[in-house]
């Protein structure tokens, strides 16, 4: 290792470590608050070193474990299925668009881009999905609308393809007699693992964190994903605290609204599994693909 490389190592470590601390401190506060005693927060304020700890918030969630476990199952199913299909469609769409020679290529790219700026709004989307496709109260309602193919991901992947797959590699494949599909599957995809992992991760996070679809298309609680349940609790609080019509009438119910610590625990329960799943994607985010070796 040269002196310069070593110096860069040090600089990088110091910078990244401080940024990591900046990123993780609020998260620590989230975890600590979720295991703090409610009364100590109310009386002494939030703290990294609360006077007393309590499991109450998690006990509250544990009481609803039946529903939560089911919801985790639904979330995992939706995330896996949605990400797989979505990733496949995105890659298939992005690859041809990345070809500079594709007839109408710019037009198709524009079509994709246009969806990022303009949308018909919630009402017509709901109309299309419920009246034409009838997906209300089905598991597909959590997978198909809005999330499956995202214009942003397509354009991002297109740029990645343009950037990392040299035409020469594809041309040599063509000379070898490989069809476009084979070239795509046996050359482009293996070369693009970091890209696929990145987009796959973004899709996974989108599916994992989504509660909009459930909110709009589901009235049957047995299909709720984990975020639907957690968000239902949070949006109920938001709604009741900002809406005097109901607040006046529902005094009794307001008193049962979850307290600060429960809200924090809810957030932790929603985030932890995806953090655990993260290393799976990182396996593919590996350095040092040498495209030269394919040549």
């Amino acid at each position: 290792m040269t002196k310069e490389t070593r110096r860069w190592q040090w600089i990088s470590h110091i910078c990244l470590a401080s940024i990591s601390i900046f990123c993780i401190i609020p998260f620590l506060l989230l975890i600590i608050s979720s295991i703090s005693d409610e009364m100590s927060i109310l009386q002494n304020g939030y703290s990294f070193l609360p006077e007393s700890f309590s499991r109450d918030a998690y006990l509250y969630l544990w009481e609803q474990r039946g529903q939560l476990i089911r919801a985790y199952g639904i979330t995992i199913f939706v995330t896996v299925v949605g990400t797989s299909i979505g990733l496949a469609l995105t890659a298939l769409l992005a690859y041809p668009l990345s070809r500079k020679d594709l007839p109408l290529g710019k037009f198709f790219t524009f079509l994709v881009f246009f969806t990022l700026l303009f949308n018909g709004g919630l009402v017509p989307t709901y109309y299309v999905y419920t009246q034409i496709f009838d997906i209300k109260n089905t598991i597909w309602a959590l997978i198909i609308p809005v999330l499956l193919v995202n214009g942003f991901n397509v354009l991002l992947m297109r740029t990645f393809f343009m950037n990392t797959i040299p035409d020469a590699v594809l041309e040599s494949a063509r000379i070898d007699g490989a069809g476009e599909f084979r070239a795509f599957f046996s050359i482009v995809l293996p070369l693009s693992l970091p890209i696929l992992a990145t987009i796959g991760l973004l899709q996974t996070i989108m599916y994992w964190n989504d509660w909009m679809n459930g909110l709009i298309y589901l009235t049957d609680p047995s299909l709720y994903s984990i975020q639907n349940i957690l968000n239902r609790i949070l949006t109920d609080i938001q709604f009741l605290t900002s809406n005097s019509d109901y607040a006046a009438q529902s005094g009794k119910t307001i008193s049962q609204l979850p307290s600060a610590t429960i809200r924090m625990a809810i957030a932790v329960v929603g985030i932890l599994p995806i953090i655990v799943a993260y290393p799976f994607f990182q396996k593919y985010l590996v350095k040092g693909i040498t495209i030269g070796s394919v040549k």
Partner: peptide
Amino acid sequence: YIPFFIMLAPGLLYLLINNYLPMFGLVI
């Protein structure tokens, strides 16, 4: 380019249904 258009088709179809079809709502 036919293979390319085959690749494009499912994704574009999805965008057509999910994004373009509801765009009639812009008239609201």
